[in-house]
Design a protein around this nucleic acid. Structure first.
Lengths: 126, 126
DNA sequence: TCATTTTTTAGAATCAGTCTAAAAATATTA
DNA sequence: TAATATTTTTAGACTGATTCTAAAAAATGA
């Protein structure tokens, strides 16, 4: 665990955040001004390999990172792009039976329209 | 629904396949030799917008497409990269409560090592 | 038909992510 | 500690998936 990796981990670990690699790079530079983009990518891969963070994919272009590798769900608002974590009922056993193999981890992706966006879309006068 | 979109849809609809855009382009050219890459991307976006196909993201670089928009699970083997569909127990109601918003669709991504790969990895003599 | 709109095409452009090779840091061994 | 080996970092070039652009073609509709 180098200083660079620690910096990257500290950024990703911020509560409730799901940053892109570019955002992590920007934030990490505030901690270690000389850190390079390649090191951010290297660190993200190493941290993911070591199960300290998890890569997730939103519907847009770039990958994002989550501070927890523990299986959980993500709500993706299709209007404002906000990502929210939520706890999953544990169905590891059920999945093991379905998968007929060794489960590493899982994630439930839910596309939805969040409460705020739904409110905005509602047009009571029409 | 143009000829091009129909061709793209027919390729994506092949049973059990989870093609990349490039693979879809290759296959679509066998049906309509003059079809262009941009049209394949346009068509994929239009078909996804109209809920006829679903975009999924494996762990590797490029997006893939699934012939069904109906919520279901995907098993991603981390060794051989094979993707397998599986049915999900319906928890739409539970999700609606959790999400506090309007659910569009959902997908359960499971990272695992499939039976065949696990067999290969096992080294009984050690 | 004529005008309007949508779609397609080919190729250029973009952008996220990877690769490279040299420099720096770290670990190892004598 | 000095010498050596290994790992990591850095900057920038490179790659490859996807998007953009502008002109041509096709579809729509008055």
């Amino acid at each position: 665990m180098t200083r660079q990796r620690a910096a990257v981990l500290s950024v990703v670990s911020r509560k409730g955040c799901h940053y892109t690699a570019e955002e992590i790079f920007t934030e990490a530079k505030l901690i270690l001004p000389t850190i390079s983009r390649a090191t951010v990518y290297n660190s993200l891969h190493a941290l993911e390999r070591d199960r300290l963070i998890r890569r997730i994919t939103a519907e847009d272009s770039s990958d994002r990172y989550d501070s927890s590798y523990i299986p959980h769900g993500h709500l993706y608002c299709t209007r404002c792009a906000k990502i929210t974590d939520f706890e999953l009922p544990s169905f590891t056993e059920h999945l093991c039976a379905v998968a007929d193999g060794e489960i590493d981890s899982y994630e439930l992706k839910v596309r939805y329209i969040c409460k705020e966006c739904k409110k905005m879309v509602e047009t009571p006068k029409m």
